[in-house]
Design a protein around this nucleic acid. Structure first.
Lengths: 224, 224
DNA sequence: TTTTGGAATATGGTATACCAACATCCCTTG
DNA sequence: CAAGGGATGTTGGTATACCATATTCCAAAA
């Protein structure tokens, strides 16, 4: 059975395993590989024109991220994403988003607060111009500032992973009527809580922000 | 430089990479490998009497768990655990513990509640008998019941990982005078919230429980 | 004595080879 | 024709070989 992967270009200076990981990951998230489908190391390696070793290492990472499941004596198969899985990811993100915000409140510097205010304004501007892509990028930066301010590498990297899962669908969430305006209001509330270095308020508003975002996503994604 | 690992016994039916992972992980958590020390694939493989392949895969998992850090053109080095790292792990656990408890409140079955009550009683009994080891085991079971009730595999497995980090020190926390009694009270409060299927109360009491446990740990571990 | 070039070495990344377990299918045998 | 068994193939796990890069160190030249 063929996966229809193109041979890898070797001009990449990064490690092959990372390229393979990205290829497989995108294929799964883009549903090019169906849930339940087996991933056969030899076949993938052959199609990509490389050896099994980097393929194995890439698959390993996928297992750790639960995008594929290891079945004894069968190899790995693509995991299915049920609605329950999506919900779990969203609630984890909500919880950690609240956590990192409360931590950030205690540590954030005036310089970073300034940057957040500037970004919030830009985001709102781009919204009005209808520039979804740009405003999404800026939105990511907004949250990245907060993540960094919290100086909590584990939470930070975990949130990034979750974010990548969700990103594949996020423009859907933003297309919900009225959501962009809400986002602006919520961003302002977050900035205010952070400015006051009020951890519990920051936790509360961040949780509300993430919950609303999750809700908007679920409504749009599962309206059927 | 020698790591002083003994050759692996091959009678293990499990995969070698898992054995290697456990060996390295324990060595790091038990401080037999010092922070900053390099892990050289060839040397480890040689000492264990196996090939590099399973060693590589084990090291990969360690990187994902941040127990070691990959340094370009250097290989991997053992990560240092500062107090900030411990604190971060504890607050993540607190956050997820609260989350999983609130989810469990909505899903838990009478059968599981019965089991929790029985365990809480046993734990308190073993405390009084001064049987720390046994009561710790039962405590783990107590939380495991709740984890399972939540049916949230990602949170569940993440909490297990965090738990293993903390476990290495946990008997310290329990040695704090008065803590065992508090634990019993907190367990009762958790059971009550779960019985009422009150998610927000469950979240609150679980958070308090985890926070108190973290506090007890930090006080005992860093009294100097 | 200092500097520099290159060879030797160390090490991780990648490719390949080998093996054991399991599945599949055909052939034999009743 | 059906059932059992063995040959063969598939696949993941492990071992080994090879390669590229970077570091170290020594020797030769200025």
């Amino acid at each position: 059975m063929a996966y229809h992967f193109s041979p890898i270009k070797l001009d990449d200076k990064g490690h092959i395993r990372d390229s393979v990981f990205a290829i497989l990951r995108n294929a799964i998230l883009d549903k090019k590989l169906e849930p339940g489908q087996r991933l056969v190391e030899r076949s993938i390696a052959e199609e990509l024109g490389i050896s099994r070793t980097p393929v194995r290492e890439a698959i390993h990472k996928l297992v750790l991220e639960r995008l594929v499941t290891h079945v004894p004596r069968k190899g790995v198969v693509v995991s299915g994403f049920t609605k329950a899985d999506i919900v779990e990811i969203l609630v984890i993100r909500t919880s950690l988003e609240a956590l990192i915000c409360s931590i950030a409140a205690a540590k954030i510097k005036p310089r970073e607060l300034k940057r957040l205010e500037s970004l919030a304004k830009q985001i709102s501007d781009e919204h009005e111009k209808g520039n979804l892509k740009k405003s999404n990028q800026l939105n990511d930066k907004f949250h990245e500032i907060i993540y960094r301010a919290a100086e909590s590498p584990r939470v930070h990297s975990f949130l990034n992973t979750l974010h990548e899962y969700i990103t594949k669908f996020t423009q859907v969430a933003y297309s919900k009527p009225g959501r962009p305006a809400e986002v602006c209001v919520e961003h302002k509330a977050i900035i205010e809580a952070l400015s006051k270095h009020d951890s519990s308020e920051a936790e509360a508003v961040a949780k509300k922000h993430a919950k609303n975002s999750s809700k908007a996503f679920l409504e749009m994604a599962y309206c059927d």
